[in-house]
């Protein structure tokens, strides 16, 4: 079966971002960018499916600017067979991304689409669920284990109370939690080979999807800083502070 993996180029998780002083957004000039960590888990899962003989072809897809080619090259270096770049100058909202991905699904006819549970820049946690709705497919979100068995998947999900297992029939959407797997690091020869693998470029506009934003960004601000704290010497002093200074004990 064919597996489609959605990957997003985001500010690296180690970067401490800065809010622009005019409140218009977050400063992303000259910061390290990488593949959304959850999407690395998605790709790793697809690669393991291929190793296990479940998947035959892995296609990575991203929506972004030409710079997102970097992210697709990383995906190809990890082991994706080919990649699709949907070129969009203005980053679409999750609803727009889901609509574009649904068009790719129509063209590519994968049996499984794997997305991250959330992109660590917008923290929306929506795209996979939206794509599932648009395709009228079942969804297995926040997956920490996926066992393929014939035409279905036994999927273990992380919930607020622990874990739950559901069974979903293919074709299906899966969104990943970080504990699904440990993504591999590409080796140098794989990085070299990835340079020869194909990336298809398509214009977002060519899909005939309305990408007009529904949410207007009024302003972006930094959260209130916490008041500087104090270092206390020992447990006794701490208890005293909690009781008599903070009044919380």
């Amino acid at each position: 079966m064919k597996v489609l993996v959605a990957v997003k180029r985001v500010v690296d998780y180690n970067v401490r971002i800065r809010v622009k002083s005019d409140g218009s957004g977050v400063d992303t000039d000259n910061v390290v960018m990488s593949m959304n960590p959850f999407d690395e888990n998605g790709l790793e899962e697809a690669l393991r499916m291929k190793q296990a003989g479940v998947a035959t072809e892995i296609v990575a897809v991203t929506v972004g600017t030409e710079q997102s080619q970097d992210t697709l090259r990383s995906a190809l270096a990890m082991g994706a067979d080919r990649a699709i770049l949907i070129n969009a100058e203005e980053a679409p909202e999750p609803l727009g991304i889901a609509k574009l991905l649904s068009k790719v699904v129509e063209q590519e006819q994968p049996q499984v689409v794997i997305l991250g549970k959330q992109a660590i820049d917008d923290d929306s946690n929506q795209t996979g669920q939206m794509l599932a709705a648009l395709l009228n497919w079942p969804q297995g979100t926040f997956a920490s284990k996926a066992e393929f068995e014939g035409d279905s998947v036994n999927l273990t999900r992380e919930t607020d109370a622990g874990l739950e297992t559901i069974k979903i029939n293919l074709p299906a959407i899966i969104t990943t939690d970080l504990r699904l797997n440990e993504p591999r690091l590409p080796k140098l020869p794989d990085i070299m080979k990835a340079k020869k693998k194909p990336i298809d470029m398509v214009e977002a506009a060519s899909f005939g999807v309305d990408l007009t934003p529904r949410l207007e960004v009024v302003s972006v601000s930094a959260p209130e800083a916490r008041k500087p704290g104090v270092i206390v010497a020992n447990a006794a002093e701490l208890i005293d502070k909690l009781k008599n200074e903070a009044g919380v004990l």
Partner: peptide, 23 residues
């Protein structure tokens, strides 16, 4: 915005053609 809400509401949003405001 628990795992329960995060799981189903975006699905409704796409069915309604609405952009959800998360969290």
């Amino acid at each position: 915005a628990s795992n329960f809400g995060k799981n189903f509401l975006p699905r409704v949003a796409a069915m309604q053609d609405v952009m959800q405001v998360s969290d």
